[in-house]
Nucleic acid binder design. Structure first.
Lengths: 227, 227
DNA sequence: GAATGTGAAAAGCTTCACAGCC
DNA sequence: GGCTGTGAAGCTTTTCACATTC
């Protein structure tokens, strides 16, 4: 059982492979080559082979990968069959939507505790769970052995939440607040700012427009080209 | 006015700089060095200098960057002050939550049209906008000059939505469906699968556990180490 | 003195191409 | 013949380090 270091970029692609393999298994596909997986995922075949090789030797030369066995091996290594309890912090519009997001349940994540900073939300029920005050977070996380947290608070609460998470012994956080979260170095954090993601797209568009007009300018007045 | 190619990795960090600069401007900070920006963003000073240099020469050696002017220049280049109309596709729990997500409005994105595939939702109102059938998407996108779309449908609708978007002339898509979206090569797509992001964290945790126990194993029975 | 902007080195990631295996 | 797993090449991104500018 080889336990190699898996590069972050490869790790981030593993969920794609899992989804693709599950779909194949559901369709009764027994074996798949890296070519076929490439077609169904939109990635390069060589990249898929390299990524899977970080986990060990699972393929059969001349044939490909046995879908079921590959899934089993990944389940074992990646805790896929394990049900992961998750703490949700923040139950505004976005937080509440995530509390009942079926995608999490389908992938074996269960939100087992909900926290919020605003006193008026404490005690209300979100997706069948009573909202707890932020101060109870460290205690409940510890008691229930929760290792993953999902943060969806407004930017002005991020600092406060960081502190509570840091003292709770949580292991990893998916942060959807529009501000990067900084807990200690032992905690893995993924920051996803949806508005920033939209901005990346709009920046790209805005610059396209600019370079188009700049290109047009250059074409009409060659002297401007050298800059 | 230099129009250099900005590498994707740098482009993805620009929203962070914008947020940080805005916060500084609000606090009345006039100038900031790359050091100071590094402190407030958690990134490396040298990386910030390199990233900003792709946009042009904005700093003053020995002093730093003038916060207000840098923001103005970025606004000009990146269309920051422009209000971007956005089409929302999918108004389930997640889609509806995003329709009223204040983060988008704060960053000048306005959802101006909402579409859904399910007949029972057509005609209902989400965030003050009447939900339209998917078939009207190409027409309305064209008529209203919409360039950005936000997709939050279930995985079984992704294919159908792809086709409609492709024929609509949309320019960029933020896809939150749990399945990658493939439109033509002229359309920029960012796929964010929230459940997959959670999986990346849980994989990391699961592997940590494994390597810890593997390390323990190795320590207790040295013969297993070579492999 | 202090900080930018950028060559150059280092690290990381992807793709090529093929030996080895089925 | 077909496909995996992986050295090696190529590309991108990050970091270093310093000449240049204020």
């Amino acid at each position: 059982m080889k336990v190699q270091r898996v590069p972050p970029a490869a790790l981030a692609r593993l969920p794609v492979y899992v989804q693709s393999l599950k779909a194949m298994a559901d369709q009764g596909v027994g074996w798949a080559s890296s070519q076929e997986m490439a077609r169904s995922t939109g990635l390069e075949a060589s990249q898929i082979r390299r990524d899977l090789s970080y986990l060990g030797h699972f393929g059969t030369p001349g044939v490909g990968y046995e879908v079921k066995r590959l899934l089993q091996d990944m389940s074992l290594h990646l805790g896929l069959s394990h049900v992961w309890p998750v703490a949700l912090v923040g139950c505004g519009t976005l937080g509440s939507a995530l509390a009942s997001y079926s995608g999490f349940v389908e992938r074996n994540f269960r939100i087992v505790a909900v926290f919020d900073a605003k006193p008026e939300t404490i005690g209300t029920t979100v997706a069948g769970i009573q909202v707890q005050p932020l101060d109870l977070l460290p205690q409940l996380v510890r008691e229930q052995g929760i290792r993953l947290a999902l943060v969806a608070v407004s930017s002005d609460c991020v600092q406060e939440v960081s502190a509570k998470l840091a003292s709770s012994g949580i292991r990893a956080v998916l942060n959807l607040a529009p501000k990067p979260l900084s807990v200690g170095p032992e905690v893995t954090v993924r920051n996803i700012d949806l508005a920033a993601e939209m901005q990346v797209l709009s920046f790209h568009e805005a610059m396209n427009r600019l370079s188009v007009s700049a290109a047009a300018l250059r074409r009409s007045s060659p002297r401007a080209a050298g800059q």
